[in-house]
Design a protein around this nucleic acid. Structure first.
Length: 270
DNA sequence: CGTATTCCCTGCACGC
DNA sequence: TGCGTGCAGGGAATAC
């Protein structure tokens, strides 16, 4: 599902098609995804040129002159660049028509995604309280250790909190915790500084490798050229409940944690 | 403030 | 074959 690597894969795929292109029209086949699509997307964006395609956390920002289009893929969203004449299918909610003869098409069956507008010079409230980027300077084990003191929530929920560190969702939390040898149910405040340093390194490695492999495709995700992500073959624990641990052979355990499927190796993770 | 729970939505895998 | 049920999950909203 779209976590940081899938959003970054999308960003990299979109950039060459969008940079320097003018949005000639916006086609809204649905007025709201998770939230109503604000008027400036329809009224202000057409005629403007895309000057940058950025990512912050799991959000994509298409920078234009008077503001930025802010996109979130939610659970099932994907963006494709297609020839303008390509007929729209079910759940193809929005097209940004480009002066290149292509359209940027937003497809999202479950409609947990969003398309919002951020006026130039302002920061959208959704972006205001986000934690550091895990692949940038400013994120390390000490940051996690300091944030976690006194927190009794399970460490898995803690590292998925976007105010603590961004971009880590259910899949990559499970994978990074496995690589760091940390049990997902352990209280965040009881995890040592050294363990958080291991986790930070593991998270960087998992995210970077997943980006190299074009993300993880379980069902819906595709890159803008339609390609699936191949990191699914590298998953050590996610989706493997009851199967043997690839390190020690122990049967992987699973349970629901804060509404999320959680998987771990009872031997390798403490 | 922190934590746990609910809800939004559709498609698909199940079991009967 | 078809129908009901449960699950998938990002993250805001809500309750405590």
């Amino acid at each position: 599902m779209p976590e940081l690597p899938e959003v970054e894969t999308t960003r990299r795929g979109l950039a060459p098609h969008l940079l320097g292109r003018r949005v000639t029209a916006v086609v809204l086949r649905r007025s709201a995804l998770r939230w109503p699509i604000p008027a400036p997307i329809r009224d202000e964006l057409p005629g403007q040129t895309v000057t940058a395609v950025d990512r912050r956390a799991k959000y994509l920002l298409l920078q234009a002159q008077t503001g930025s289009a802010l996109l979130h893929l939610g659970m099932s969203g994907s963006l494709r660049v297609l020839p303008a004449a390509t007929p729209a299918g079910t759940h193809d909610h929005v097209d940004l028509v480009l002066d290149s003869g292509c359209v940027l098409r937003f497809h999202d069956p479950r409609r947990f995604g969003c398309l919002l507008w951020q006026p130039a010079g302002s920061v959208h409230p959704l972006l205001a309280d986000l934690g550091p980027e895990p692949l940038a300077d400013g994120f390390d084990g000490d940051h996690l250790w300091r944030c976690s003191r006194g927190r009794s929530a399970p460490v898995k929920a803690f590292v998925m909190d976007q105010a603590v560190v961004v971009g880590i969702g259910n899949i990559y939390a499970a994978e990074a915790l496995f690589r760091a040898g940390i049990h997902p149910l352990r209280a965040a405040g009881k995890v040592s500084r050294a363990r958080y340093q291991q986790f930070a390194a593991a998270a960087r490695e998992v995210l970077a490798t997943a980006i190299d492999h074009g993300g993880t495709t379980l069902r819906d995700f595709t890159a803008p050229d339609g390609a699936p992500g191949y990191f699914v073959r590298d998953l050590a624990v996610y989706g493997r409940v009851g199967e043997p641990c690839r390190t020690c052979g122990t049967r992987l355990r699973g349970r629901l944690l804060a509404g999320r499927a959680t998987v771990w190796c009872p031997h390798c993770q403490r």
